[in-house]
Amino acid sequence: MSRGSLLVTDLSVQRSGRVLLHPTSLQISRGERLGLVGASGSGKSTLGHALVDTLRAQGRRVAHVPQSPDEALDPLRSMAFQWREAERALGLAPDYARQQQLCTALRIAVDQLGQRPWGWSRGMQQRFVIALALLGTPELLVLDEPTSALDPVIAARTMKLLDSVLAHGQTAILLITHDLGLAARRVDRLLVMHDGHIVEDAATAALLAHPRTPAASALTRHRSWLTLPC
């Protein structure tokens, strides 16, 4: 195993006797950009959660950004308070310079950190959640449908900012999405899930060109709405 890579073996999840995730092993290299795609109910989020829990139990630094910022933010606390809380949870001392730097990179208005989430646009809330996730320079950032609660202009801007923040290559990402079009442009390797199994694991270009399973071909066939004329 290469240095700095993350490894889980035979991960599985059952709930009330039903297998949601069949035994799955996965290796993620340092800084790798990985996409996890599949239809609703195929087990993507289940794998994401199980992966986060297992890797944290191994002592690895893993951060998780849920689909909607509502799931991650406390409506009663100021953003500044939630920032300090996140630092404390990671055992970090308050660091004003780091806050400035992350907020600037993700276009978060530092002068509004005293407000509660409901004063903020959803796009900025989601960027704030991403900023918190990046605080401890995680080895893996799990992004679970990070843009589906955002409208497209904001979503595109958020993904672009995220790309620039992750350009240092220390943090691997796992982008979970039902939308192959979204994943195709920003990950190097794709995992396709179907009925609780990873049915394909391939380089993005190879998978797009030659999907081997019905689940993957359905996704590639429906990758985008329209191919633009050159």
Partner: peptide, 8 residues
């Protein structure tokens, strides 16, 4: 285009 809804 950036989100892959239109493929260029």
């Amino acid at each position: 285009v950036a989100l892959g809804a239109l493929d260029d």
